[in-house]
Amino acid sequence: MRLRHADGSLLHLAYCSNVHPADDLDGVAAQLERYTARVRAKLDVPVLGIGLWVAAPALADAAAADRLASQLARLSLEVVTLNGFPYKAFHAPVVKRDVYWPHWAQEDRRQYTLGLARLLAKLLPDDVVEGSISTLPLGWREGWDDAAQDAALRALADLAVELEEIEAATGKRIRLALEPEPGCTVETIAQACDAIGGLAPDWIGVCLDACHLAVQFEDPVEAVALMAASDVAIVKTQVSSALRVPSPGTAEGRELLARFNEPKFLHQVRECVNSHVEGTDDLPEALEGGLPGEREWRVHFHVPVNSAEHTTQDELSATLAALAGGTAPLTRHFEVETYTWSVMRDAPQDDEGLVAGLAGELEWTRDRLVALGAEVLG
């Protein structure tokens, strides 16, 4: 979906396809037919954006990339951003910490990301010259040392050179966006600025995930100001919302948390204790006494962005205002990322229910951007 900011900039709104399981490019194309085209029809828009997740093994099939491009055109879909965080098997029965491997100190991560950049250069619409790829924030913190940090930063610098070569060859500018996440080597915006400030700023910036920002109790206005002061670009944003539990120690709070305690994904939990953010790496740890439970918990569980009850929707709205409410947008790629529909106890599990849910999230986000002064195109 395309919108025009008040300053004339083109904004792209999409949802992320990591909600759909697909291990190869033909599988991705099939999911576009099964779900995304129906979301577009439900929204009644001429073109719908889709932020693709493509597993590493799928990149080997060059012919399938051409078929995927044809499928996108046939279904009136467009791609300007890729989610390059999960490497593969994102819909395995148990994902948990596996999503953080390979990390940026391992060669496989750079090769995967380079493959994504080459694919995106092929898939970008003819009238769009800039694409974005979100990626993990270097790696998981445990076992990370100075040698890994140095290797990761060298890999990013090497990739920046390769991205410049892609632009020279194709005319398409692909930028990388590190996505701070609770529990990782880089879990806050301040840490992101420390890690990549001054490192190829034309090519490497941040993916601002609103769920992660809220879980860490970071203020979006302060985060945006810090990135500006550090010359770190907001390459894309993931429109997402976290679970909020105001009274986790009560019976009502425990009952609510139990509904989201599932075994597939990692659900980091944070609580402000004595003005300091404390946390656990997963929800079961928090429930077993890892946090005091005396104040509000925020849980890394992506919940539908159009849901206000027990969510950080207010923080998401504030993030969107910080990004798109000024005289110029601070990013032009907005990707709704609620990948947890299949593990939400009360969510519809049929195709029609998922299509309606995704369309509802995009409608809500579109309306927020319009309220901030943007105009829907088409």
Rank of each mutant, 00 (worst) to 15 (best):
A41R: 02
N18C: 15
E285V: 03
D146A: 15
W140G: 15
D194Y: 12
A200G: 10
V277A: 01
A37R: 15
F260A: 14
R109T: 03
Q191P: 08
L124E: 04
R67H: 12
E278V: 08
V245C: 13
N261S: 14
A200C: 04
W140D: 11
T113H: 02
S317W: 15
W341F: 07
T113A: 03
A121R: 06
D7S: 02
E271S: 13
A29I: 10
A22V: 04
K236F: 14
A117G: 06
L176W: 07
Q31L: 08
S132F: 03
T188I: 05
P248R: 01
L82D: 05
G289L: 00
R244V: 11
D127K: 02
N306R: 01
E294G: 13
G8R: 04
L48P: 07
S241L: 07
A73L: 08
R295Q: 07
E337P: 02
L330D: 00
A321V: 09
L123T: 01
D314M: 09
H267C: 14
A328Y: 08
D219S: 14
T188D: 05
E107I: 04
Y87A: 00
E167F: 12
L369M: 10
I166L: 08
W104I: 02
A214G: 02
T81C: 07
R254A: 09
P292F: 01
R254G: 15
L25V: 13
A251H: 13
C193A: 05
L291S: 03
L59Y: 08
L48H: 00
A229F: 00
A318W: 14
Q111Y: 00
P21D: 00
A190I: 03
E167V: 00
G357M: 08
D194N: 13
T36N: 01
W203M: 14
P125K: 00
D44I: 10
E187Y: 11
Q106G: 07
L138C: 13
S230G: 02
I204P: 01
L283F: 05
G131V: 03
W101V: 10
T340P: 03
N306A: 15
D24S: 02
G183L: 06
H212A: 03
W101Q: 12
E179G: 09
C16D: 10
Y339I: 04
T113S: 13
R366V: 09
I174A: 07
G8K: 06
D44E: 13
P182C: 02
V128R: 14
T280K: 02
L178H: 00
T311D: 08
L32I: 10
R175N: 05
Q216H: 06
P220S: 07
